[in-house]
Simulated scan of single mutants.
Amino acid sequence: MKVLYIGYYKENSDWGRITESNILALDAAGVDVVCRSINLSQPRKISGRLAEIEQKDLSDCDFCIQHVFPDHLVGSKKFKKNVAILGNTFTEIGHTSVPEKLQQLDEVWVPNVNMARELSNLKVKARYIPFCTDTSKYKTKQKDIQIPQAVGKFKFYTMLSPDDSKALESILSAFNSEFDASELATLIIFLVSPREDSNKKVRDISEAVKASLHLQRDVSLYPREIIVGEPNLTQEQVYQIHQYGDSYLDINSGHPWSSNLIDAVGFGSKPITTKWSAPKELDDDDIAKTIDAVFKCKKSSGGHSSELELGKDYFLSPCEKQIKEHMREAYEEWLSNPVVYTQKNKSKGYQKVEEFSLKNIGATMKEKLND
């Protein structure tokens, strides 16, 4: 077996790191894999084993994996099996040309069981294979973060773009209607790719949410969230954040996979996320708290969007009642014994993420190629 893996592994992004991990996973499983890159932007320099794999000869590849956007997919009968890997954030593609593009290939691998079900309904042969991660990082002690306002408190935290106002409003609404300033709970908002006015924008949204809740006579009486805006969060800083926090809030708009969610579990932070987005392996109350959500039609106040952003697609709106309930459960468990809470989540979290290791997912991919 020799596999040609085509993807965006030179992109300096989460997408690029996921692609790199999949290539290394096949290699770890003993598969003869050779990779070739499609560059969407200025490519990053690669090294180590990935660079060695890229230098391999292309001849005699009998399997092909295309880990690219649907527009870049190419149908071919020269391989025993031609596979697409899809991890995009759209939830409804029946009205687009994507199913036709996917049908060019023998099968499609997706990291989300709900996404696999949706594609199967569109007559696309889809298999659920979660993405993988290098679990060795969870054994490494990260540099400690120092936030004086959060010392001695239970730290709910999230990482959001300042433009992700829907998720931000849900988190702020749940937190501020569940906790008051007398409790030892704090909310830390780490802004991803912030602009100069991002802190003010988030603060304005926060004050508007608090005012609309009508639970205090003045917004200054609510707990004050901590806003951290780093211009360019490095991967090491992201790991430090997960090691630091107690409960990661992964309340997104329907992403089929979240590397941050897996990293949170691996570093011992029990996340709260949607049942749609969570891998089925995390459907365990000891590992993560999952919430229901409803689909709402996408709308935009801007100009014409791409094919995938039309109003026939949806965004995911989480159940704020369940967010509040799980926040309270986590806080009360921590309050009863902070040390036990932390140690238990670190131990169980690390055991769980081993299921997403390069070795395990690589073996699964190898098995599915031969199937």
Rank of each mutant, 00 (worst) to 15 (best):
T234D: 07
S182A: 14
F315A: 06
K275C: 03
M327P: 02
Q42F: 06
F175W: 02
I227E: 04
R328V: 04
Y5A: 06
V209A: 02
S300T: 06
K200P: 03
W276I: 10
S177E: 12
L160C: 03
A25R: 04
L73N: 08
K78L: 10
G152K: 10
R117L: 13
A278Q: 01
Y157K: 05
P111L: 05
L310D: 06
E107M: 09
F356K: 09
Y222S: 11
H72M: 15
G311S: 15
I251K: 01
V151D: 11
N112M: 09
Q243S: 12
V353C: 08
S300K: 09
W109K: 08
L168I: 09
I205V: 11
I323E: 00
R117N: 06
D134W: 05
W334I: 05
S317M: 09
Y350P: 01
L26I: 12
K123V: 07
H95S: 10
S300H: 14
Y341S: 02
K80T: 14
Q240M: 10
I227T: 11
D371W: 11
L308C: 03
I361E: 01
N252K: 07
E309L: 11
Y9D: 04
G245K: 13
D263N: 14
L184A: 14
A51T: 06
L24C: 06
I188F: 04
D263C: 04
K137Q: 10
T19L: 08
D292Q: 12
S193L: 14
R117I: 07
E52V: 05
I65V: 12
V209K: 02
S170N: 11
A84F: 08
S76Y: 10
V83I: 15
H214Y: 11
A288T: 01
K289V: 00
E11T: 03
L213Y: 09
P338S: 06
L249Q: 02
F179G: 02
S206Q: 05
S47F: 08
E325M: 03
E230R: 12
F179H: 03
H326I: 00
S269I: 01
L369V: 08
S21K: 07
L358K: 13
G87E: 02
Y222Q: 07
Q42T: 14
E11R: 05
K298R: 15
L335A: 15
G30K: 08
I205N: 02
K346A: 09
D250Y: 03
A51V: 03
I23N: 06
K352Y: 01
G152H: 02
L4N: 01
S212L: 07
D32E: 11
E354N: 10
K368S: 03
V108A: 07
Q351K: 12
I93M: 13
C35E: 06
Q103K: 15
G229H: 04
E183W: 08
S170M: 02
G7N: 07
D284A: 12
Y239Q: 08
Q149D: 13
V68I: 13
I38H: 12
L187Q: 00
S47R: 07
T342Q: 13
M365H: 10
R17N: 06
Q42C: 09
M365Y: 12
A293N: 02
N337I: 09
K275Y: 03
G48D: 14
F267A: 00
V151T: 15
N82L: 08
D285L: 14
Y248M: 13
E307V: 12
V83P: 03
L191N: 09
S59P: 04
G266F: 01
K312E: 08
G362V: 04
K270A: 11
T274E: 00
